[in-house]
């Protein structure tokens, strides 16, 4: 079985038509489905939050069979994820795509759980601590994308569950939970 680092690739990754956008509707639907599942699976396990269409992305080419996705195909598969609400385009030109294997709402719930687990119901924590602190080590929050984190915090802020404030250093912000 072929692997990409730690990631186990399915057999059909070596199936050449998998890399050609299929024109027949039924076939294409199934193909798009398989791509969506594989992209989400890969991003979740490898903690990939952003896919750049013009950059190298390990899934989009298979040197073993000498096939890679065309730009059109990449955009088609990512657009399908966007339509499902599992991804968002980060710019109008569709050059960067934010992958949401957890929706923003789900990330917000994970944050609440994190605060409870660490006794932070009324505590203060910085963004950097959430992303790279000892408390988040080994959890899904470790290394979370800044954009996603900000969006999840905003949801909780609107519900009055926390307040985001500027910290002492300009590039860091603090979070005060009030659960």
């Amino acid at each position: 079985m072929q692997k990409l680092g730690e990631f186990k690739l399915p057999h059909f990754f070596n199936y050449p038509p998998y890399f050609t956008l299929q024109p027949v509707r039924d076939t294409r639907e199934k193909q798009v489905q398989l791509w969506k599942d594989l992209i989400l699976d890969y991003c979740r396990t490898q903690k990939v939050f952003v896919i750049g269409l013009e950059e190298e992305f390990p899934l989009f080419s298979n040197p073993v069979i000498g096939r890679s996705l065309t730009h059109e195909a990449r955009e088609a598969f990512l657009s399908a994820l966007v339509a499902d609400g599992r991804a968002e385009w980060m710019d109008k030109g569709h050059r960067k795509c934010l992958i949401l294997w957890h929706r923003i709402q789900e990330w917000a719930e994970i944050l609440v759980q994190f605060a409870r687990d660490n006794g932070l119901e009324d505590g203060v924590v910085t963004m950097e601590e959430i992303r790279f602190g000892t408390e988040s080590q080994g959890t899904e929050l470790q290394g979370i994308d800044r954009t996603i984190l900000n969006r999840a915090l905003k949801i909780l802020e609107q519900k009055g569950k926390l307040v985001v404030f500027k910290g002492t250093s300009t590039d860091d912000e603090g979070v005060k939970f009030s659960l």
Binding site: K8, P10, H11, F12, Y15, P16, P17, Q22, D26, T27, K30, Q31, Q33, L34, D37, L38, D41
Partner: peptide
Amino acid sequence: FYINLFTEIDRDDLH
């Protein structure tokens, strides 16, 4: 052209 495998693959378990 290849035989169509897409319909054969199980969505719930890619492997």
